[in-house]
Amino acid sequence: MSRPQYSLPNLRRFLGACVVTAFLVTAVAAYYGTPEPLPASVDTTSDAAAATGGPADQAPATVTIEPEPTAAGVELPSEGPGVSEPGLLLIAAPLPDGTWDVSEQVMLAKPTTSLTLAPADISRAGSQFGFARPEATSVQVSVGEQPVVIPEARVIEQVSADIPSTTRFEISYRLDGATVTTVPSTARRGIGAIMPVTSGLDPDLPVVVMVVGETVLSLSCPELSLSERNCGTAAGDEAMILAEPLPFGAAVVAAQIDIPRL
């Protein structure tokens, strides 16, 4: 008596073939249905909750993938901390090599004659930065029109400098080693840890962080309470800014970006 064609092994093989085929067909569909990673611009109509670093029960970042990024439309703050009142305004822009172009504008309540710079402890931005060693290079400091010399123009350890008595100074530098790639994720997706290199200021001094670039996706403030961590809001079409200033003692921002292409 011959075995029936619908025996258990045959049924298993048939089911197996169906499942394998279904997955392969889905693979083809997923390949053609998934958009290529393109430079993304933040949808300015949303609150742009942080996609990474944000709590799971909050709305994810609304990101509009646009084939052609919109024209630049950055609105730099004309008032507020570091500009018209005591505080620090930090403006950072991601560069194609994963570094950041950063400037810090500082306005103090009382004049100072010394300036201290120190590498940021970006491990505070999250465990993924535990191995990161940020370095500020091409450091330029100016008090009014007068430049202040920083040895080797770099900050890899604490540096102090005497400056003319002032309530205002400005620092610009290239920040390296502060970006990690998000894995698994789309190509060029990363998170940058942004903190001032200016050190020794009043822990309560308000700090505003603005991240400029068409590939900035979200800002997260890891040292705030869970409900406040999605701390960025759109500033024009191609920038995000903190919705509320941070105290200097908690001025840590994780910016999710697509590292710009050359």
Partner: peptide, 14 residues
Amino acid sequence: GMTWAEVFSPISAA
């Protein structure tokens, strides 16, 4: 809270 498009490229999705 990432979207499908943020997690996958076409190759990694396939």
